[in-house]
Design a protein around this nucleic acid. Sequence first.
DNA 1: CTGAAAGCGCTTACAG
DNA 2: CTGAAAGCGCTTACAG
Lengths: 344, 344
Amino acid sequence: MQNMNIKDIAKIAGVAPSTVSRVLNNRSDVSEKTRGKILNIMEQYNYIPNNSARNLKIIDSNTIGVLVKGIYNPFFSRIIQSIEEKIAEQGYSMTLNYNYNDSNDIDTAIQLIKEKKLEGLVCLGGNFEHLDEQQIKSLNVPIVIASANIIDQKNKSMVSSVTIDNEKAAFEAVDYLCNLGHTQIGLITTGIADRSIGRLRIQGYKKALKKHNIRIDENLMEIGEYTFESGYEAMEHLLDKNLEITAVFATSDIMAIGAAKAALSRGLSIPEKISIIGFDGIEYTNYFHPALTTMRQPQEEIGYKSIEILFGLLKEEKKHQHVILKTELIQRKSCKRIKRITSY
Amino acid sequence: MQNMNIKDIAKIAGVAPSTVSRVLNNRSDVSEKTRGKILNIMEQYNYIPNNSARNLKIIDSNTIGVLVKGIYNPFFSRIIQSIEEKIAEQGYSMTLNYNYNDSNDIDTAIQLIKEKKLEGLVCLGGNFEHLDEQQIKSLNVPIVIASANIIDQKNKSMVSSVTIDNEKAAFEAVDYLCNLGHTQIGLITTGIADRSIGRLRIQGYKKALKKHNIRIDENLMEIGEYTFESGYEAMEHLLDKNLEITAVFATSDIMAIGAAKAALSRGLSIPEKISIIGFDGIEYTNYFHPALTTMRQPQEEIGYKSIEILFGLLKEEKKHQHVILKTELIQRKSCKRIKRITSY
DNA sequence: CTGAAAGCGCTTACAG
DNA sequence: CTGAAAGCGCTTACAG
């Protein structure tokens, strides 16, 4: 039969559609006999309910959405895992969606909320600078932005956020290198695209240099994309310029790996000839050889905290919060103390 | 206003809902004046249409679904990119969905088709052994299974598939190692979970050994999961057993990287002390140091071909096809020719 | 425990 | 070019 629906099942079972709906939703107010009969028929005809119809009608979806910016980001995947756990603990379902094109993040978010009648949403990454107060408020669904800056002060009353202090974290990473004796420190970062975060990390880099009275040299700064290849190329450029760099700070692990590979490919051993520090703390870095030192973002905690805040807003009607989580320097094998500039 | 709908917009604009719907769908049969007015109002009120309602009613969604098994798989991400390109070329939209829990893949697929009124679906990975002919046929939506074996002969008339010859590819990888002089070759693979594919690759491994008159030793075979960590541990086990292995074949790059890291961590250099070959051809292998030799699956081609077949089924009503694509041995820096067993 | 009816927010012939 | 009406496949009070 072409696309069975609830009415067809009802007819075959000799009951009303509403009864079929009840067994579909596992309601208790159906006799076991009727339930059994209907379940059998559904099985027999391979009936699969239409979610669009359900979403349209439903009020309490009992589900929380997770909207991820981009596709394929190992950094987010750990966060997602911890989010899913926590959502399940609350007896809710999670629906995972990727915003892989460059459409407006907030519009996509609202669309999703409406379409699936979500009771809450956490956004991983994305741009949420421009929020329409009217729109967000009238939606009446709590939104938590994780791992993306919301900048505008007035946004703070509309959504919650869970972030790290990007500037401080970058500062600490570079400060660490300086304390190891490095003075010629390259920066490999992403560009204008992720304005807020990228800029903050660059700020941190500069601040650390200033603290150590090191001159900021634009030549030492390479701007690329969030890919291995881009990190690789950035390192090549840096090395080609012959600036006698002894260390590099990459603002993402993916780029750090690319950079490290470029150095190793030239026969520059890590950390003997060049020190490298990454950012994010993705699993990859631990399996690179040598294992990469990195400024770790607390991925699980970002997930947990987001959900904690979300359910606080949902069930206890708390106010929006803006939590800043601590990063942690994971010292591994890619950074070395130096006395003076090693020439190579 | 709480959740505007098409009726509200219509009322404000002083037109009928159907007219609003027309501008929403970019139909040409609306006067520019009316269109402008409605567009303005939508903008002003931040109107966002409800997709569930749309999906429910619509017949030609003009969209192709992509259902990905699992979450976060770098191997699939390249395929997805090429799929998206090709779908766009055809003037269709793509909707990307992840089946991250362990629910039945074919049910999830059908649910998705119904919910979003998809005109075609490509599934990346998953288990499609048990297909209900009735159900698939009545659906009347072409399905292409990529990178997953469908085994059952009778399934071949219901869905198309794009795969590689897993046994042959594994055979060639191991044959390559044998030809380099290796005889003690470890196998690191995934287990019972991905029955079809895992088993086929193990078969290939065994066949290659047989061809070279090498005894198959269960001790040389480690079964784990698709993670770095699992590859790492498998290698540790292998090494602990002191079997004088000189090479390892890992049935996925992720595991190969874990394995390589384990070897390097013990001070066993690659390829001098141990050769490693992976499978899949993900980008990371090229950035590992030393760059890993791997049996590459043609990721872009898997994507292209899937879409080509899909539109063949959709527009030209062709029959279901089962394409087997060629893999390619990418020789890099992790395998070495040996004369005799190197002791370590 | 079960059924009849209304309605979720759209789209789509049909008529004008 | 525009509107009135039917209906997509469900769920949910309401009544019994």
